[in-house]
Nucleic acid binder design. Structure first.
Length: 591
RNA sequence: GCGUUCGUAGCUCAGCUGGAUAGAGCGACGGACUUCGAAUCCGUAGGCCGCAGGUUCGAGUCCUGCCGGACGCACCA
């Protein structure tokens, strides 16, 4: 259904236009889209506020005067509400025109729809095919905290985009070739003695990562190590069977381990692309572009593009020897993807360090004549830093993904025991891991994607305050009330729920907030920013917390009031459940 | 040097297309568990929104300059 703000914008536009005609302002016509609406700072000021300052000039009247003129029209008032989903009253409040929604009708709507599977969805992106590329790990080491941010951003964005109506395809490009893998291989040859991850008791990707780190040791012992890694890469490209076999063995270990972390983090993909398949793609496109004069061959023999006019300098697209580089394969991969699944938008979730790369990539595709290049989007997110600065592999300051989830799970399990909730939650380990994911994902999503973020271990391991577990806790409390109701506690089952009983000042802030789920999902989808939804989820939890403190649900003598409040708690549960799902936070009935 | 981006309370962060008195959490201090779960709630203290101009009826938000941080400016990915 149309959002109430959208509806009332058109009412205000119609009224302003009518007033303009009365005043003889011919040709003056406002569209609803031009109307500025905002949320009044206090509930007693109404539900929507329309500032009228900007109309003062045209009407040659003070804004407060216009507000009075527009608000006090009885017959308009009736007309406004005919056939409307969101009836209400207009009042002049100083220079503002404020809408007071009919609360009973709004509650009716909430109770009628919040249990539906479509709750929190929208039709904003109906009919659009949107591809989201994220994660894209290297196969020489396990995932770290930076990947966790990438993964949850991509997964959450995909879910939000789908909730906004799009058909979404999640894709992952596994970087399974290149010099970094050769380094792990070389170190394994030097120190591995043909051992397997099982032999060393390590998760397979950690095993591979261990040898990547050992490459540094190798370099100290063998000054030729870098050189040898290069040779290994050349042998790999030449298809040397022995090298390929080793690569396959180590690569499978790495990928297997990475997939296990995905499952644990509850992120998934519809398609995997592997760089060893895609790295040769794009070469033909670049040569075609050369033939058509889009690119040029430099004196060095390599193929270049000149982007000086855009301030992007010159960039090599294909080496002198005809081999591909990073951008070559990205060109080919994008084209291949669009051919197979003609998307309306392709979102690359990649760290901000690669902004230049994507500017160049998109421009190359545009100049090659692909008009869909305009629909490519780089969702650039900031780096995750430590209080001591950037994570560095060599200094061993990298926060490992599996270790972090382990640690969070351990702490959550400890909390469960300390709070004496072991019996109530049942499977402690399973619930603890869900709390850990809630804490981790909320921590990573609450910050605007474009900002660098600080990972402060102490703070991020906290489960109190503005955290995922706080939201999970409120969901669990709502669930607990509903569970008791089902078990027959209180006298709500003897009463009848009625919207009018939930229209008081005490209920209204919560009701109105719950009604904003779908528009918040839309806003998050439009701006590609899950942090907006994260803030909303926290707001709902916090509002619910304040509400149920003051408004007894089951312990209530009035059976009808009790039944009505149970219905509202259902709406809260449903809303928190939906928001949590979109934020990759497991919803818990008990914790 | 050039480009991108960030700068809001002691710390970590919100603040939607410019609109009503700039908000949370943590930390500090003081309160609330014989009533639906205290991973909670209530209260107090804490702000030249980096600085200086400009646009506007109105600027934390837009523009310009400066200061400070991050990232980028590879035939690496």
């Amino acid at each position: 259904m149309e959002h109430y703000i959208v509806q009332w914008k058109s009412v205000v536009a119609a009224r302003l236009n009518a007033f303009a005609r009365e005043k003889g302002l011919l040709g003056y016509r406002l569209s609803p889209y031009e109307i500025v609406a905002e949320k009044p700072p206090k509930p007693e000021l109404g539900d929507i506020g329309f500032p009228l300052f900007s109309y003062a000039k045209q009407f040659r009247m003070a804004p407060a005067q216009i507000a009075l003129e527009i608000a006090n029209r009885e017959h308009d008032m009736r007309a406004d509400n005919v056939g409307r989903d969101w009836p209400g009253n207009l009042k002049a409040v100083g220079p503002y025109l404020n809408v007071y929604l009919d609360r009973t009708q709004a509650v009716d709507y909430l109770l009628a729809h919040s249990e539906e599977s479509s709750w929190g969805t929208s039709s904003l992106f109906n009919g659009r095919k949107i591809m989201v590329e994220f994660s894209c790990p290297n196969t020489n080491k396990p995932l770290h905290l930076g990947h966790l941010r990438n993964n949850v951003l991509g997964e959450s964005l995909a879910r939000i985009t789908a909730a906004a109506g799009a058909e979404v395809k999640k894709v992952d490009l596994i970087n399974d070739r290149g010099i970094h893998i050769c380094k792990s291989m070389l170190a394994y040859l030097a120190y591995g003695e043909n051992r397997s991850p099982e032999d060393e008791g390590l998760k397979s990707d950690h095993f591979v990562g261990k040898y990547y780190v050992l490459f540094n040791k190798l370099k100290e012992e063998d000054p030729q190590a870098e050189q040898k890694a290069q040779e290994l890469l050349q042998k790999w490209e030449a298809g040397d069977p022995e090298v390929i076999a080793l690569w396959k063995k180590m690569n499978d270990w790495a990928v297997e381990g990475i997939m296990a972390t995905y499952r644990r983090q509850q992120v998934s993909f519809d398609e995997f692309h592997f760089e060893h398949d895609t790295y040769k793609l794009g070469r033909k496109e670049v040569l075609d572009g050369l033939a058509r004069g889009v690119f040029y061959r430099g004196e060095d023999g390599a193929i270049w593009i000149d982007l000086e006019d855009l301030g992007l300098g010159k960039k090599v697209l294909l080496r002198k020897d005809g081999t591909s580089i990073y951008i070559t394969q990205d060109i080919g991969t994008a084209i291949m993807r669009h051919e197979r699944w003609p998307f309306d938008e392709l979102i690359y979730v990649v760290a901000s360090e690669q902004q230049y790369h994507f500017k160049v990539l998109f421009e190359v595709l545009r100049r090659l004549g692909y008009d869909w290049a305009a629909n490519l989007y780089h969702l650039s997110y900031g780096l995750v830093n430590l209080p001591s600065g950037r994570m560095k592999t060599r200094e061993g300051t990298v926060v490992d993904a599996d270790d972090l989830i382990d640690e969070l799970t351990r702490l959550a399990a400890q909390e469960i025991v300390e709070k004496d909730r072991s019996e109530a939650v049942g499977d402690i380990q399973s619930v603890a891991e869900k709390i850990a994911l809630g804490a981790l994902h909320y921590f990573l999503l609450q910050i605007s994607p474009n900002k660098d973020m600080l990972y402060n271990p102490e703070q991020s391991l906290s489960f109190t305050g503005d955290t995922g577990p706080y939201i999970q806790y409120m969901g669990a409390r709502a669930s607990s009330i509903l569970r008791k109701y089902e078990q027959g506690e209180g006298n709500a089952s003897r009463g009848t729920s009625g919207a009018a009983l939930l229209a008081s000042d005490a209920d209204w802030p919560l009701v109105r907030l719950l009604l904003e789920l779908s528009s918040t999902v839309e806003q998050s989808a439009r701006t590609k920013d899950p942090s907006i939804l994260a803030g909303y989820a926290h707001g709902v939890a916090s509002e619910f917390s304040a509400w149920y403190r003051d408004n007894p649900v089951l312990n209530n003598d009035d059976a009808n009031l009790s039944a009505s409040r149970v219905a509202l708690v259902r709406a809260v549960q449903s809303t928190l459940r939906r928001a949590s799902e979109l934020l990759c936070m497991p919803f818990l009935e008990a914790m």
